[in-house]
Amino acid sequence: MLRHLIVVPAYNEQDALPRTLETLQPLPEEYEILIVNDGSRDRTGAVAEAYAAQSRLPVHVLHLPVNAGIGVAVQTGYLFAQKMDRFHYVIQFDADGQHDVAALPKLVETAAREQLDLCIGSRFLDHGSTGYQSTMTRRFGIRFFSRLIAWLGGVRVTDPTSGLRCAGPRAWRRFAKHYPEDYPEPETLFWCVRNKLKVGEIPVQMHPRQGGVSSIRPHHAVYYMLKVSLAIVLDRLRPLGH
């Protein structure tokens, strides 16, 4: 039986984490959960360990000694999958309660059926969706990256910043080697598109965060836009596969 790993990066998520982890319990046996405690200063690590001790599904907890950012936390999950060598798909799932657990099996099924290397849960694919679609400023940023990736890579993705993503072996083995330390989603998506990995999306519902603080602070927005745009444009100059 193919096994899949759900990577839950968590930084100061002691309030939202228990509820998020509880929602993962009904998943089938083939799923394992990896909580990456990214140097939290609150009780996130203890909450994760307590959950691991009583969970029905296998749960692993990694503690990074200092806060290193979302990219490093997620990449640690890919490295873990590489070392364990028993997982087929690796799925990123936010600890803050924004993601809907019902989307996980659909992501995996779609990735398997359509042989996708990266399957993204999109907030914007279902036009009649009543789910949370982020603030207006962020939607502007999302549209900008969507167009930039379409222009430079030739593939249109509606939600390039979505943190709900299912990566197949070709994608996550590369991510284990190279992964941006901050704001990684649009850049890694572009790498997949440019290197002819198959990328797809499914519609998902998202919720407002249940606790904690977003890694993209309002005063970081300009830096975020510049850094990610530069990373995408410069990736275009690298040899393929690099």
Binding site: V36, H60, V61, L62, H63, L64, P65, L79, F80, K83
Partner: peptide, 9 residues
């Protein structure tokens, strides 16, 4: 740091 966290786990 990543290797250390994985080995510790």
């Amino acid at each position: 740091m990543q290797e250390m966290a994985i080995q510790e786990c």
